[in-house]
């Protein structure tokens, strides 16, 4: 089971301020990344259909903030938000950070992560299914694409993030 992510359950003294600071620092990066992904992969919006206008909360349970996504090609929103000020959303996707990253990159199977209870979804299930299918139809790694935008520092951060997580969340080799 993944840890609880109730907003108030994980806030320790000072965490609120850290979350706000992290969100401020991250925001220019997230804005640049989402615009780049949207420009390079316009076909994903067709698979989202009516859920281009849905608000998603992507909640990496061990990080001090969550990510608010509205995949509207006319008004993209992708921002880090402290959990205690997270907006009301249509659907929430919750799990460990690297699992979420690997799901975005189709290195892990979403159904398998759901079966194992490592992934939790709530709200509009159709919106989540559409987002999953849209992302899964992208060739290559979005994480590597995003990290490459920031050159060597970006790639280094991604490599360190991947190394920082235990083997249990690494993609499995089946063959």
């Amino acid at each position: 089971m993944i840890p609880t992510s109730e907003p108030t359950a994980r806030l320790r003294p000072g965490e609120g301020a850290i979350a706000r600071l992290a969100c401020l620092v991250l925001q220019p990066v997230l804005t640049r990344v989402v615009r780049r992904v949207a420009a390079r992969h316009p076909s994903l919006f067709a698979r989202l259909g009516p859920h281009q206008a849905t608000d998603f909360l992507i909640d990496p349970v061990e990080l001090p903030f969550a990510l608010h996504l509205r995949p509207d090609p006319q008004a993209l929103v992708f921002r880090a938000v402290p959990r205690d000020t997270a907006p009301q959303v249509g659907a929430t996707i919750r799990g460990r950070f690297l699992l979420l990253l690997e799901l975005i990159d189709a290195e892990q199977d979403g159904d398998a992560a759901f079966f194992s209870r490592d992934l939790e979804i709530s709200g509009d299930t159709e919106a989540v299914v559409r987002l999953r299918n849209a992302l899964d139809d992208i060739d290559g790694s979005l994480a590597e694409e995003a990290s490459a935008m920031f050159g060597t520092p970006g790639r280094t951060v991604l490599a360190r993030l991947r190394r920082a997580y235990p083997d249990a969340t690494k993609p499995r080799e089946y063959a």
């Binding site: 892990q108 159904d111 899964d136 499995r172 089946y174 063959a175």
Partner: peptide, 9 residues
């Protein structure tokens, strides 16, 4: 209905 990861594996 499964992912590329499932298909590949």
């Amino acid at each position: 209905q499964r992912s590329k990861s499932y298909v590949r594996g």
